[in-house]
């Protein structure tokens, strides 16, 4: 039987993601900060909510930053929300925070924008169900219809411009990367664990993916 490690750095609600993964697999699912458990797991999930400075800071403080990066370079790896943003070079949040730099790119705050249809200022955070366009095929998109709605909640985004690893895109005030992938890494801005059937399908696909 395979095992999945969800990296715990003391932030956010990891129970949701654990429960959702357990719902789609009989694999062992552990929420852990233990270096050995993470490195011996077959698959690793880096979740995240809240602000990027606290997220990066806590990962370093809890000593999981290095092991997270090791895992991202060596085994099937799923980043979620801030867990995706942390993989980029830099985020503008909290007056600028250096991230893992696994992918070149900068995370920006959504611009203040008037909605074309309603003529109203678009609310931030981008919160709710929005459509994700799959840019090309990927094993993690298996059995998920094109333009399915996933649940998002975020104020910062990765622009699609000049980003080479987009596999899913979305639009809110600006076009942004909803999913990125390269080699053994897949990372999403939305919350699959809160995205009903399509989210569960993505998690199930991850449990069967060998990177």
């Amino acid at each position: 039987m395979s095992s999945i490690a969800i990296i715990d750095y003391g932030m956010g609600n990891l129970h949701s993601i654990k429960k959702a993964i357990q719902h789609v697999t009989d694999d062992t699912v552990q929420v852990t900060a233990d270096h050995d458990v993470i490195m011996s797991a077959d698959r690793v999930v880096l979740p995240g909510v809240g602000a990027i400075r606290d997220c990066m800071g806590e990962m370093r403080k809890q000593g999981v930053a290095d092991v997270a990066m090791e895992a991202a370079k060596s085994k099937p790896f799923l980043g979620i929300c801030i867990g995706m943003q942390a993989l980029l070079s830099h985020s503008d949040e909290n007056n600028g925070v250096a991230c893992f730099d696994l992918f070149p790119g900068n995370i920006h705050h959504f611009p203040k924008k008037i909605d074309d249809q309603s003529g109203e200022l678009m609310k931030i955070p981008h919160m709710g169900w929005n459509q994700v366009t799959q840019n090309g095929s990927h094993p993690l998109w298996a059995n998920i219809p094109q333009d399915s709605r996933f649940y998002f909640v975020h104020s910062y985004y990765l622009p699609t411009d000049n980003f080479a690893h987009t596999v899913g895109s979305c639009h809110y005030a600006a076009p942004f990367v909803a999913a990125l992938a390269k080699d053994n890494v897949f990372a999403v801005q939305f919350h699959p664990e809160k995205s009903h059937t399509v989210g569960l399908q993505l998690l199930e696909n991850f449990t069967q993916w060998n990177g």
């Binding site: 909605d115 249809q117 709710g128 169900w129 929005n130 459509q131 333009d147 709605r149 639009h171 809110y172």
Partner: peptide, 8 residues
């Protein structure tokens, strides 16, 4: 294509 209004 845009953000859906939610029913809660």
């Amino acid at each position: 294509m845009s953000l859906a209004k939610r029913i809660i």
